[in-house]
Design a protein around this nucleic acid. Structure first.
Lengths: 109, 109
DNA sequence: CGGTATCCACGGGGATACTG
DNA sequence: CAGTATCCCCGTGGATACCG
């Protein structure tokens, strides 16, 4: 899921701790709450909810309740949210290109 | 100094709160501690020192004590540090292009 | 001039339990 | 299923004072 974007702890971040991963998870289309929670190993429901609400307030994604039994909720990126792919890709590219050098410095220093 | 990179509170950040601005300040060449502190309005000596030490540990910049009376200290970006310009520019471009839309969502929501 | 030393406030993030 | 409600920890960052 995130193989193209190595999880070097920082030094580069978009929004909160889970924001970049959420965007990446939604890349290929809308997903439900539980479909987001599974791949984002370690995130609690509370924190995931907060992150999603924050992204919704910023217009990065939409939240849609689908009725039925059982009902579910769909999260989908807006155009604004998808526009983050570009800077996100730049960060991933930087990390891929320099993470070894960075790790070497940290190990030495 | 930072006119080309609007200070939208985030959503995009490189490292700590001051990291991106420090890198930008060092863009045109080496600077002394006090030459960094002035344009970074609001940063305390402690926090600036911490940020610089962290960047030094990561190999992003070098710290050089110049003897003499009065002596001073020079901070200069390494090649690794300068390599951050690219993703940094991508972030600035995104912010410039979408900050109005973002602000509108936040005001409405 | 270029820092340390202390102390402290705040907010993000997490653990756990519970709910419509 | 998709959350809330609580409680709490801890790291970042800031205020203030002092130092070689």
């Amino acid at each position: 899921m995130f193989a193209d974007c190595p999880p070097v702890d920082p030094p580069m971040r978009v929004g909160g701790k889970w924001t970049a991963k959420i965007i990446t998870c939604l890349r290929s289309g809308p997903r439900r709450f539980s479909e987001l929670r599974a791949p984002l190993a370690g995130v609690t429901a509370k924190v995931l909810t907060e992150s999603l609400r924050s992204l919704e307030r910023d217009g990065m994604l939409t939240r849609t309740e689908r009725p039925g039994v059982p009902g579910h909720v769909e999260y989908e990126l807006t155009a604004l949210g998808r526009s983050l792919f570009e800077p996100l890709a730049a960060q991933c590219a930087w990390t891929r290109a320099h993470m070894a050098e960075l790790a070497a410095h940290r190990a030495a220093g």
